[in-house]
Simulated assay, not measured.
Amino acid sequence: MTLTVPDGAGRGHLVVPGSRDAAEVIHGDLRARILSGDVPAGSELSQTGVARDYRVSRGPVREAFRLLQRDGLIAAQVNQRARVATLSIDEVEHLYALRVANETMALAVSVPRFSVAELDELDRMVADVEAAEPGGFALWEERHHRFHMGLVRHGGARMLGSIRQWAEHTARYRRIYIGDDGWSLGSREHPLLVAHCRSRDVTAATTLLARHLSRAALSLIATMDPAHEPALLRAAIRQVVPAGDR
């Protein structure tokens, strides 16, 4: 029998008890809820409770927990329980340092490979992001993420998988620490990023993207702990941005 995941846990996913994809579906749904803040940092999850909510045995839940732990989103505890990972300023800095270094590299590869149709699509994505701002953070974040993934689309499947995961993890922090004005401040740079891609100017595009990402990171870090010195992030920026442009 096919069951719809219960309200509060759902998003239209289906769980088939005993099926091989049950763990994957539960992992995907719980992951999305943790990243969106629906399941807050510090929340306790029990295998028994989750199995009851999804109407499955503890086997697929145990596997889903293992995958969430691999993602760094939960920490296993005793008695088949886990706790959603707390928010960490060190993680913010680490994630953004990875994003600066790797997204600029993927953009450098993508710029000479963009087709005219892909560049036109990026322009449409810019307009979509701007149109989403009055709709609130969730809609803006979805379209903003799509735009940034479009910028690095020729970076290769393995690189894109890592970039997607790092971006999703930083969204968890942006939802909490950046207010309604903060998350839209960088939007004015999106058209210029596309313009640099269209002119095939790799240096200008990667320099702007590094600044764009690091500004968001430094805003988050300053909100979380103004005394924190982001040495790792600054090292990543130095690797990308020419000395005269810092």
Score class of each variant (00 low, 15 high):
G161T: 13
A117Y: 11
F114D: 00
A157Q: 15
F114S: 02
R164T: 14
G136L: 06
R143Q: 14
L119R: 06
L151M: 12
G150V: 08
R146C: 05
R113A: 11
A108L: 04
V152D: 07
A131C: 06
F114R: 01
G136F: 08
A138N: 14
R153S: 09
R164Y: 13
E142Y: 08
M149F: 04
E121S: 14
E142M: 11
A138T: 14
L119T: 06
A117M: 15
A127C: 03
D128R: 14
G161S: 13
H145E: 14
M159N: 12
A138G: 09
A132E: 11
A108K: 12
G161M: 10
L151H: 01
F137V: 05
R124N: 11
D123M: 02
G150P: 07
L139G: 09
E142C: 07
V126K: 05
F137N: 09
L122M: 08
E133W: 13
F114P: 02
H144Y: 12
G155V: 04
G136C: 08
F147C: 05
G161V: 10
A157K: 15
I163M: 12
V111W: 03
H154T: 08
R124Q: 14
G135Q: 15
G150W: 04
E141I: 02
D128W: 01
H148I: 03
I163K: 07
E133R: 15
M125N: 03
G135E: 15
V126R: 01
W140E: 10
V109H: 12
W140V: 10
A157P: 00
G135C: 12
S162V: 11
A157T: 13
R124P: 00
M149C: 07
R124T: 11
A106N: 09
I163L: 13
A108P: 06
E118G: 01
V152H: 07
G150L: 10
R164I: 08
V109E: 12
F147Y: 08
H154D: 09
D128V: 05
S110A: 08
G136M: 03
R113F: 01
F137G: 04
E121Y: 08
L122S: 02
R146A: 13
R164V: 05
H148Y: 07
A117S: 15
R113I: 05
R124W: 10
A106K: 04
L119N: 03
H154P: 04
M125S: 11
R164G: 13
D123K: 03
L119M: 11
H148T: 12
F114T: 01
I163Y: 04
F147S: 05
L151S: 05
L139W: 00
R143A: 02
F147R: 07
R153V: 05
V109T: 13
A106R: 07
I163P: 06
H144C: 00
S110G: 09
V152M: 10
R164N: 14
